[in-house]
Design a protein around this nucleic acid. Structure first.
Length: 364
DNA sequence: AAAAACTTCAACCGCCGAGGA
DNA sequence: TTCCTCGGCGGTTGAAGTTTT
């Protein structure tokens, strides 16, 4: 019944690869090409699982891979694509020649996520924290009654700084479930108090801007959060931008809207701008050795957050002061902006057609 | 100079859909 | 039709490297 197992997992080498093992894979692939990976260890004389061999090849040994640093253009594209499609790393990586999904994922987790936090932008929703707060204030009608909440926030925030957060990714989505008390400080207050030079505290922030699943209404979330994608990515192969998404990672039952591509890959493959523009930018950079407009035009002060040493790509315009609404869209590359603008248009359309979505008691 | 804290990233894990036996 | 593996994916881990104290 079925096929034999690919390897005896208890009897294969694990851990880092040696140069010798790399050479064996390279020699095998150059002679036989890529085929059945389960046969590779045996034929190449390796005591490794076939799956491990495939991973080593695709993530490290492939000749077309880049091993140098990410360029500002690549950063910008990753951020734009993450905003559009969430943590579909393989799809994002396909728009970045020479990069693997693992590369992109690692770069996002180690660099870009922190950058966005430092800019006061939630890397899950890609909205400025200030906008999330103001949106929430509008919805809950608490804008004139925040004093107690801030005091409560400060108390909780200080106590959280001294203890390790529990699974930050999930806390973004669920948070303390027992209370409807909102621990959402004004972003300026957060930054001045604790976030400027404390990287760990950035990781804590999501606990405060989303403390309960009903705080952020789904219509505010134009894209599926990265934290949700893991559990839903495989079983929910179609993700709709325009579908009301539960912020608690429940599977959406919303029917497909045909005004947009039914698959993200379709969008990425069909959008002539998203990747082509990028590749053109890459070529221009290669020929001129200069940064794109990202770092030259967008040279507004980010000293407030970073000391001015970092390039924040598409988010450089109009966000940092907290007065931004959707103006950051204007700063996107032209290729991405059409798509994102479409999302925002749909969002507005949906709000006008379904005002009940603005009701905080509305439950998906 | 040494220890502690922090960051990076290669590799692993577990899940899923497709398809072979 | 059922069981199983393969290949692919995203999330997580932990060793190695780097920076700070």
């Amino acid at each position: 019944m079925g096929r034999p197992p690919c390897c005896d997992k208890s009897n294969v080498k694990r851990g880092l690869w040696t140069a010798e093992e790399d050479a064996k894979i390279l020699a095998y692939v150059s002679n036989h090409g890529i085929g059945n990976w389960t046969l590779v260890p045996k034929k190449a004389g390796l005591n490794r699982c076939g799956k491990s061999c495939r991973l080593r090849w695709t993530n490290y040994l492939r000749p077309d891979l880049k091993h140098d640093n990410f360029t500002p253009q690549e950063e910008e594209l990753i951020i734009n694509l993450h905003k559009a499609i969430g943590s579909r790393w393989s799809l994002i990586a396909r728009q970045l020649p020479g990069r693997t999904d693992n590369d992109v994922k690692n770069y996002w987790n180690t660099k870009l996520r922190k950058k966005l936090y430092k800019m006061g932008i939630d890397p899950v929703t890609h909205k400025p924290f200030s906008q999330i707060l103001s949106d929430y204030g509008n919805i809950r009608g608490i804008s004139n009654n925040t004093g107690n909440d801030f005091a409560s926030f400060n108390k909780n925030f200080n106590s959280n700084l001294t203890s390790k957060p529990e699974q930050p990714s999930s806390s973004v989505l669920t948070g303390p479930s027992s209370s409807n008390v909102i621990l959402t400080p004004p972003i300026e207050q957060v930054q001045e108090n604790s976030f400027t030079n404390n990287s760990r505290s950035w990781e804590l922030l999501p606990q405060f801007h989303v403390t309960n699943h009903d705080i952020l209404q789904p219509h505010l979330i134009n894209v599926v959060s990265s934290s949700c994608s893991s559990s839903s990515s495989s079983s929910t192969t179609v993700t709709q931008l325009n579908s009301p998404q539960s912020y608690t990672c429940q599977q959406s039952q919303t029917p497909i809207t045909h005004s947009s591509p039914s698959l993200w890959s379709e969008f990425l493959l069909s959008d002539p701008g998203m990747s082509l523009d990028f590749q053109q930018q890459q070529q221009e950079q290669d020929s001129h050795g200069a940064l794109s407009s990202t770092s030259t035009q967008n040279d507004i002060s980010h000293d407030k957050f970073t000391g001015g040493n970092e390039d924040f790509g598409p988010y450089d315009h109009g966000i940092i002061n907290g007065n931004q609404t959707n103006s950051h869209v204007d700063a996107y590359s032209s290729s991405a902006s059409s798509f994102v603008a479409g999302i925002l248009d749909k969002d507005r359309e949906m709000r006008s057609q379904f005002p009940q979505l603005l009701d905080p008691s509305f439950d998906y």
